[in-house]
Design a protein around this nucleic acid. Structure first.
Lengths: 206, 206
DNA sequence: GTCTATAAGTAGATAGAC
DNA sequence: GTCTATCTACTTATAGAC
């Protein structure tokens, strides 16, 4: 059997992921998840006691994708500009593969901020300090204009993530709902964002 | 009577706005809206036939804030850098006054993209073309590096809006939920974003 | 483990008195 | 216009057979 038969728990999680991501917690129906998983409702409760528990399981699984392992690559001894390029490329690749991730996480942030915050803190560990150190070093070496590392990180994340959040609008307005064209545009953004950031941190005065 | 008594319809709209914005369409309850408006459920249906109609009314009202009238100011004969500053300042002021607006609109974009898209198109009119022309002129005059106006607009909006979407996270991680400090940070971003953009569009090579 | 049937509670919406 | 009471449909969750 060529890995075609998944066990029931996996089938449920996969189905729940699809429904929760597209409908949100409140909009999702246990019946719809059961249909999607091709089982009946009672079995959902057998595996995951309640809708809440099922959502938690899905969120934890989905959330783990949100901090690409690529952060590790930023430790290497390559130039800062290369690190930015790796970060942006990786993030946009991840979002292209999981376009609904940002909206899903935002929904949960608003529904349940404390829980999400705790998960983020746990997931990041000491990474922020580490990133801040890289930036501080770069500034001290005179290779980057002085800039609050917090603002810098937020700027970088904003440029990567927001377009995917606003994607239905962008695709509708700029590309008349042509998704291929929209994909190409997102691909373009990789270089666009890197250029934008690199220029903006240059030490030369304008 | 010093404008203290609002008519019922206004009371309902205000209450509905509060509940829909914090809970989303699916999470909001007509009963909760009625309580908030200090009336009973039946009256909600008397004024607005259904939950859908009530939401539509709220969304249309809220949505109108999303395109600050400040776009008009960008027509004036001031330098491009000044226009950017006005745009960013206005947008962040608006978002500071309405912090939940972005998440609310994103929720509706995902629930009902076509309707939102239609509203945006209607609201913007010919403004995008107008903005694109300003940018194209700036590039042709050699005062701005060549950059796709669509990317430029999205970059500017990303830097302004995204931090408000991610605000619960930012406030939690950087400011241990101290909202005053977080407000100060958002205020700082005005200058931060403008510097970031101005440098990034400079024609001087890095 | 998986199913059918059903309980228990809640939602939006309406009827009808005042 | 505003209220109370109620209908109908749907939702999560459980009981119990196999």
């Amino acid at each position: 059997m060529i890995e075609k038969e998944k066990n029931t728990e996996e089938k449920i999680l996969e189905a729940a992921k699809k429904i929760f991501i597209t409908k949100g917690f409140d909009g999702a129906r246990m019946q719809e998840i059961a249909n999607e998983a091709q089982i009946n409702k009672a079995l959902l409760h057998y595996y995951f006691r309640s809708k809440d528990k099922l959502f938690e399981a899905v969120f934890a699984s989905v959330f783990s994708h949100f901090f690409p392992a690529i952060l590790e690559a930023m430790q290497s001894e390559i130039p800062f500009a290369e690190k930015i390029k790796i970060f942006v490329d990786s993030y946009i690749n991840m979002l292209t593969a999981n376009p609904f991730l940002p909206a899903f996480i935002i929904g949960e942030i608003n529904r349940n901020p404390e829980t999400v915050l705790a998960m983020i803190k746990k997931n990041m560990g000491t990474k922020p300090d580490f990133l801040f150190k890289i930036i501080a070093d770069e500034i001290n070496m005179g290779r980057m204009r002085p800039i609050d590392p917090r603002h810098f990180m937020i700027n970088m994340l904003s440029l990567c993530i927001f377009p995917f959040i606003a994607r239905p609008i962008i695709t509708g307005i700029f590309f008349e709902n042509n998704h291929e064209a929209s994909n190409g545009f997102m691909e373009e953004r990789k270089n666009e964002i890197v250029s934008f950031i690199i220029k903006s941190i240059s030490v030369r005065s304008v």
